[in-house]
Amino acid sequence: MLFIVFQLGQDRYALDARELVEILPLAQVKQLPQAPPGIAGMLDYHGVALPVIDLSELALARTAAHRISTRILIVEIASGRRFALIAERANEMLHREVGDFAAAEVAVDAAPYLGPVTRDDRGIVQWITPQKLFSAAVLDALYHPVKEAA
């Protein structure tokens, strides 16, 4: 399997490349006032407004650094829903089989998206599961049809 590797702080994480639709350079995001933490706003993606999640803000309570290596990852989850992830230093690929990952042995209830871990010559890489980034209620709110004003 192929994974894209990115960083949250100094730690490395991986996302299954089969969930990726496209990798884009960091672009302007329309902000959403009073959005939940981690929701950076919306992005016009080929005429469709996609929710944008800032992984650094969600996990570390700080916005992603604006670097050349900060990317927008367009992701499609099993339900067919798409959203964009802002990921720092998303410029590395990793080949691993599912069996190369082992349970993390430490579970963080507030971060159910953190999956099993693998190692390489630079240390630990943890698998992120994007469909677990938010509760079903938050996902429904992100994709809830907007009602027209009367």
Results as ranks from 00 to 15, higher is better:
89 R>N: 15
60 L>S: 07
52 V>T: 05
6 F>Y: 05
105 E>M: 10
92 E>A: 10
146 V>D: 12
72 I>A: 04
32 L>S: 01
123 G>A: 14
4 I>M: 02
52 V>F: 09
17 A>N: 03
80 G>N: 05
1 M>G: 03
49 A>H: 10
102 A>Q: 15
61 A>C: 03
77 I>F: 08
55 L>K: 03
67 R>D: 04
101 F>W: 11
41 G>N: 11
93 M>C: 08
108 V>T: 15
71 R>A: 01
48 V>D: 13
113 Y>H: 08
106 V>L: 15
11 D>E: 09
17 A>H: 08
89 R>H: 15
57 E>R: 07
102 A>R: 15
144 H>A: 15
131 Q>I: 13
40 A>F: 02
45 Y>R: 11
73 L>S: 01
46 H>P: 01
59 A>S: 01
42 M>G: 07
147 K>W: 09
40 A>Y: 09
135 S>L: 14
21 V>D: 00
148 E>M: 02
57 E>H: 13
4 I>A: 00
107 A>H: 15
67 R>F: 06
111 A>N: 07
14 A>N: 11
104 A>D: 07
96 R>P: 04
57 E>F: 04
11 D>Y: 10
74 I>S: 00
129 T>Y: 01
45 Y>W: 12
38 G>C: 01
62 R>Y: 06
115 G>V: 13
95 H>V: 14
44 D>P: 00
72 I>C: 00
113 Y>N: 05
139 L>T: 08
58 L>N: 03
109 D>L: 12
22 E>M: 11
28 Q>S: 13
124 I>K: 02
1 M>F: 10
5 V>E: 05
93 M>G: 07
106 V>R: 14
128 I>C: 01
148 E>I: 11
135 S>P: 10
51 P>H: 02
13 Y>H: 04
148 E>F: 11
107 A>N: 15
62 R>T: 10
111 A>G: 03
116 P>D: 15
39 I>S: 02
24 L>C: 09
56 S>M: 12
27 A>N: 13
55 L>S: 03
10 Q>S: 08
118 T>H: 05
32 L>M: 11
72 I>H: 01
83 F>I: 07
17 A>F: 04
100 D>Q: 14
63 T>C: 08
144 H>Y: 06
131 Q>R: 06
102 A>D: 12
13 Y>E: 02
34 Q>A: 10
147 K>P: 09
50 L>V: 00
104 A>M: 06
44 D>W: 06
70 T>E: 04
96 R>W: 13
49 A>S: 12
82 R>I: 00
81 R>W: 09
111 A>T: 13
65 A>K: 11
33 P>R: 06
97 E>R: 11
37 P>T: 14
43 L>H: 03
29 V>Q: 03
123 G>D: 11
80 G>L: 08
122 R>G: 06
16 D>K: 08
126 Q>A: 08
124 I>M: 05
36 P>W: 01
131 Q>L: 06
119 R>V: 10
40 A>K: 01
113 Y>G: 04
64 A>E: 03
116 P>E: 15
137 A>P: 04
104 A>P: 03
111 A>L: 13
145 P>E: 14
135 S>N: 11
54 D>G: 04
31 Q>N: 05
93 M>L: 14
42 M>C: 05
2 L>F: 03
106 V>A: 10
105 E>F: 07
